[in-house]
Amino acid sequence: MDRRTVLRAAVIGAGGTAFSGALWGEAFGAVAQPGPGPYGTLQAADANGIQLPAGFTSRVIARSGRQVAGHTWHWAPDGGACFPDGSGWIYVSNSEIPLIGGASAVRFAADGTITSAYRILSGSNLNCAGGATPWGTWMSCEEIALGRIFETWPGGGRAGEERTRMGRFKHEAAACDPVRQVVYMTEDEEDGCFYRFVPDTWGDLRYGHVQVLCAPSGQVTGPVTWRDIPDRDGFPIPTRHQVGAAKHFDGGEGCWYDAGVCYFTTKGDNRVWAYDAANSTLDLAYDATQVTGGTPSLTGVDNITGAPTSRDLYVAEDGGNMEINVITADGVVAPFLRILGQSSSEITGPAFSPDGRRLYFSSQRGPSGDSTGSGGITYEVTGPFRTLP
C-alpha cells in the first residue's frame, strides 16, 4: 500500500468519505484515467477546424480586432463565464494583453442570436482568468506581479472596481464558495499558493482578509489548514513567501467550485486538484504522471469549468493537443473537442450557458499563433450535452 493509499484510508477512517462533492465523491479512490468519453469518438474536423463528437456543432461568435454586434472584439481572449440575462444570457471574456487588457461581453437572446457586445472593464493589465460570483458579477484577474482583482458587471452600465483587499499577487482564477462564504484564488507562479478571501460581509468584496492553504510541501492528499496572510499588498515580501507553512503549487491556473469541492489546476505538473471544503482536505482528481496504460490525453492543463446539467468537469489545454477534455464522475478523462491547425495557441475561457446547452471558449492566438493575440477566436459549441441526476 503506497503513501497515497494510506493517506486516503486514514482520511476515510477519520470521518467517512472525504469528498462529499458532486463529482469527486463518486470517484474517490483514484485519479481519473483515460477511457471512452460519454460522447464517443471525435469526428472529422468541421468547417471551423474543430473536431467534435457526433451531434455537436460549432460556430464562431467573435474574432479579435473584428466587429461583433458593432463592438470591436478584444485581442488575446482569455478567461470567461456566462450569466443569465432575462430569457437569454451573457458571455464575458477577459483580454490578456498589457496595459489595456480589461474584459468585454456578448449578449445573447433566448434563441442564441447575438444582440449586443460591449466593454465591461478598461484600463487594467493582462487580464487572464477570474470567476463568477453568486450575485452576478465577474471577478477579472490581473496576471502580473502585484496583480489586482476587478469586480465587473456583465450587463454593463457600471465601471469595474478594484478589489485590492483580495490580495496583490499574480492572480489567475477565482471561485466562490457560498456555503463557507469565501472566494478561492489561484496564483500563476512556479511556487504559487492557493488562497481564499474571507469577506467581512458575504456579497461585498471590498473588505475582508486573505488566507493561504498550508500543508507539508510533499503532501498531495490529506488534511490542510488555513493561515492569515500578514500583508495582502505583497510588498516588499510577496504574499506566497509570507507564511512558512504555506503549500506551494507549480503554476496555478483554473478554479471551479461545485457542491463542497473546489477544483483547481496546476500547469507545471499537469494536475487537477480537489479541495474538499467541508472536511478541509486536499486530493488529486487528475495527474498526468499517474496515467496508466497509455499516453495522457490531457496535458497543458489550464482553465476549468463544470457542466451545470451533469457536473462533469471540462479542462482546457494550453498547448497539448489543443483539446478540451472532460473528466466524468466515474473517473474517466477523455477529449471532448480538438482544434486543428492552431498548435501555437491555447484554449481559454470555457463556460456553459446557464441552461447547459452551449459551451463557449476561445483560441487565444488562433491559427497565426501571434503572441499579441491579434488572431484570437471565440467559439460556441451546441449539442446534446448530457443531463445526470
Score class of each variant (00 low, 15 high):
L23Q: 15
G293Y: 12
T265E: 10
G319K: 11
D2G: 07
F361Q: 08
G331F: 07
Q290H: 14
L359Q: 11
V183T: 14
R163T: 03
A45M: 05
P36Y: 03
T309W: 13
S58C: 03
R163F: 09
A132W: 11
W89L: 01
D330F: 05
Q290K: 15
G293F: 10
V301C: 15
A278W: 13
I237A: 01
T113M: 00
V183A: 14
G320L: 01
R338M: 13
G260E: 08
G254H: 09
G218M: 00
L340D: 03
F235R: 08
V301A: 15
N325P: 08
A329Y: 07
T201P: 01
I144R: 14
D287H: 08
S368D: 02
V68Q: 12
S93R: 04
T72R: 08
I229F: 04
V332Q: 08
G130W: 07
G373C: 02
S140V: 02
F235H: 05
N125I: 00
F336Y: 03
P335K: 07
A54C: 07
Y118L: 05
G306W: 08
A129Y: 10
I347S: 02
D302V: 01
G25T: 04
V6C: 06
T348R: 06
M139Q: 14
R107V: 00
D188W: 05
L42F: 13
R59S: 10
V224D: 13
G383V: 05
E162C: 00
R168T: 01
D318E: 10
F56K: 03
E323G: 08
Q43F: 03
R8K: 12
T292D: 01
A132E: 15
T295V: 03
D250E: 15
G375H: 09
D228A: 11
E142F: 06
R271K: 14
I237T: 01
W138K: 07
D2Q: 04
R357N: 09
L42H: 14
S280L: 04
L337F: 12
F235M: 01
E346D: 04
G101A: 13
S104N: 12
T72F: 04
G156T: 04
A145P: 13
V182I: 01
A81G: 09
A54K: 15
G208L: 06
G294H: 13
E172L: 00
P230Q: 08
S363R: 05
E143H: 14
Q219Y: 09
T378R: 06
D318K: 08
R227W: 10
V210R: 06
D355I: 06
W73A: 04
A10W: 12
V179H: 14
R271C: 06
Y39R: 10
I97C: 04
I229P: 02
S280C: 05
E162Y: 06
T328Y: 00
D191N: 15
F197D: 00
